[in-house]
């Protein structure tokens, strides 16, 4: 009998073209970014850590990083509340309703992010729909400032990223055995208690996955941050772009991109650890 290679396995050599492509056009540029960031001057003549020292000691950049991550947390929490309820309602809907709902959820994900952001300019503007409605109901007398505010930005971003949160939650909720919830309520637990003690813990892997996607997307949402945040807010993506493009300070831009990258990876690892823990929690 000849040496047996399972016909269903194609062998790692099929990955060679992509691996070569990634090494050349993904890994090499990132390593170059690291190399460039280790220069003290824009002419790249002197090695040194001064760009990193500048970032961590100057007192301007570090708050921007912290603020960007905090923005991500705020957006993620709001999306989670809205998204969880939507996913919960989804799995309790009739199949025909589900077909429509899933279209409503997926559609924004495929619509251009510029279009979705633009919609929020229309909604939050001084002559926008929200101000019109509030004034018609006589809740406010003069138009409120909603665009170019932090809360406006958080709401808009939470909405733009909502589908990323909802989809993993739906998958997680669909996996729950309905009898578990029933069992809990038969045992005398109140509906709220069942929700927090049974349903929510069982869907933790989905929660973690959704939060990870939403968080990563909202802190890097360059267009939404700049158009809805306005000129008085500065987050890491815009900061990197300004340094690289307007000021042509490549070493510093490279350094702050890498700091941002490491910070994001750090957050992702935290999420991943949480995800692993929650899986253990969900199956026991």
């Amino acid at each position: 009998m000849r040496t047996f290679t399972p016909v269903t396995v194609y062998g790692l050599r099929f990955t060679t073209p992509l691996a070569a492509f990634f090494v050349l056009f993904f890994l090499a540029p990132l390593l170059l970014l690291l190399f460039i960031s280790l220069h003290n001057d824009t002419a790249l003549t002197e090695f040194g850590f001064s760009q990193y020292t500048k970032f961590f000691t100057e007192g301007f950049a570090l708050p921007i990083l912290a603020d960007t991550l905090w923005l991500g947390v705020q957006v993620t929490l709001l999306s989670l509340v809205l998204g969880y309820a939507l996913a919960w309602a989804f799995v309790r809907s009739r199949p025909s309703v589900q077909t429509v709902l899933i279209m409503i959820i997926v559609m924004p994900l495929l619509t251009s992010v510029v279009v979705r952001t633009f919609a929020w300019i229309v909604i939050l503007g001084r002559q926008g729909i929200l101000n019109t409605v509030l004034m018609n109901w006589e809740w406010i007398e003069t138009p409120a400032r909603l665009l170019y505010t932090r809360s406006g930005l958080v709401v808009a971003l939470a909405n733009v990223q909502l589908p990323l949160m909802v989809l993993p939650l739906i998958t997680a909720l669909q996996r729950i055995e309905p009898n578990l919830e029933d069992a809990s309520s038969i045992l005398g637990a109140s509906a709220w208690r069942t929700f927090f003690k049974v349903t929510l813990p069982l869907t933790l892997p989905g929660v973690v996955a959704g939060c990870l996607l939403t968080f990563a997307a909202s802190i890097t949402a360059f267009i939404s941050q700049s158009l809805i945040g306005g000129g008085q807010m500065l987050f890491m993506p815009m900061y990197i772009y300004q340094q690289a493009s307007t000021l042509q300070n490549w070493p510093y831009a490279a350094a702050i991109s890498l700091v941002f990258l490491v910070a994001v990876m750090g957050c992702v690892s935290v999420f991943n650890i949480l995800g692993r823990l929650s899986k253990g929690y969900a199956t026991t």
């Binding site: 503007g125 001084r126 002559q127 138009p143 665009l147 170019y148 700049s226 306005g230 000129g231 008085q232």
Partner: peptide, 16 residues
């Protein structure tokens, strides 16, 4: 608002 450029300033009037 702090506009990104003078052009945006004009459009901010247009949008009220």
């Amino acid at each position: 608002a702090v506009a990104a450029n003078p052009g945006q300033l004009a459009s901010l009037f247009q949008q009220g």
